[in-house]
């Protein structure tokens, strides 16, 4: 047998060689000092990764965790009740006469002959409801071998995603939260980063303009295989991660699937959402 090269020794260490080939290579080591040295060199390198069993024992850190748990600091934060639930609970009856009165007034205004005459050739300005969603959009990219590629409908579970947003020039929306919800209702945060369990960071500040603006970091989560919906929520004021998560959780329970959950029920926001399929097959690393 010919001498092996370092690549083959590393394939051996990585378990990539067939059983027959691994046996051949191992037998070769017994007879070839040069190749055995190569094996020992790579073996020594990997053995340096091993550690003293006590190196990462940390009783103090474990004690701190237990103290937080005993103090009740590690429990799930209470869900922030929606302001609409407040109305629903004990003031719904107030809405009934108010709605009826408003409808009556509206009907009188719309059907009054004098009003019809007065509006000839007149077009109201500023009274229409502004669709905030029309002011914003979000573009999703995945980090590929040749740079960033726009995501259309499929990503891999370990893909790093990057984002650019468009917040049109006259928009009054100044904050953005980007997150994803999978088909088990789990929320994955991209912006703001939600790393510390004890904090609830607010949405990040964004600019407005005619051109898309890139967000600076690419983010990878270990996503579940299946459907995933990415949301970009633009708001006038910063919204906290916990507040958005609580509402998204309620919407997911109502929708039962992210296919139907096209938006999160948040007031005064512009939203963009994109339904994706998460697959493993996109990982095209050679085996």
């Amino acid at each position: 047998m010919k001498c092996v090269d370092s690549s083959e020794v590393m394939r051996l260490f990585a378990g990539k060689l067939s059983v027959e080939r691994a046996e051949l290579v191992n037998t070769h080591f017994d007879h070839c000092d040069q190749c055995a040295v190569l094996r020992d060199e790579i073996g020594a390198m990997t053995s340096r990764l091993q550690h003293d069993p006590d190196e990462f024992k940390d009783e103090a850190a474990a004690l701190e965790v237990m103290t937080l748990i005993r103090m009740g600091k590690a429990e799930k934060p209470e869900v922030v009740p929606s302001r609409f639930l407040f109305w629903k609970s004990w003031q719904t009856w107030l809405l009934v006469p108010a709605t009826a009165a408003a409808t009556a007034v509206l009907m009188m205004v719309l059907w009054s002959p004098t009003k019809q005459d007065a509006t000839d050739g007149f077009q109201a300005r500023g009274a229409e409801t502004i669709n905030l969603n029309a002011w914003v959009s979000l573009q999703v990219f995945r980090a590929g071998k040749n740079g960033y590629e726009p995501v259309r409908d499929v990503i891999a579970a370990d893909d790093a995603l990057a984002f650019s947003y468009l917040n049109r020039s006259d928009s009054q929306l100044r904050y953005l939260a980007v997150f994803a919800v999978d088909n088990q209702g789990e929320v994955f945060w991209y912006y703001p980063p939600n790393v510390d369990a004890g904090n609830s960071p607010g949405s990040v500040s964004v600019q407005s303009g005619a051109q898309p603006i890139e967000l600076p970091e690419q983010v990878a989560h270990h996503l579940r295989i299946g459907l995933l919906r990415i949301f970009g929520v633009f708001s006038k004021d910063p919204l906290s991660v916990q507040f958005i998560e609580a509402q998204a959780g309620r919407d997911f329970v109502t929708s039962q699937t992210v296919e139907r959950m096209t938006r999160v029920s948040l007031p005064d926001v512009g939203q963009y959402s994109l339904l994706l399929r998460v697959e493993n097959e996109m990982d095209r690393e050679p085996n």
Binding site: S7, M10, R11, F13, A14, G15, K16, I42, M45, T46, S47, L49, Q50, H51, A157, D158, H222, I225, N280, D283, E285, P286, N287
Partner: peptide, 30 residues
């Protein structure tokens, strides 16, 4: 190499196919 997990266990923990784990291991070693 540090935690001595088997290749199948690594695949499970990282949600990667076994072949990809081997590739990552090979390239990481290189």
């Amino acid at each position: 190499f540090a935690e001595d997990l088997g290749l199948e266990e690594i695949a499970e923990a990282t949600s990667l196919p076994l072949g990809t784990v081997k590739s990552h291991l090979f390239r990481g070693l290189k």
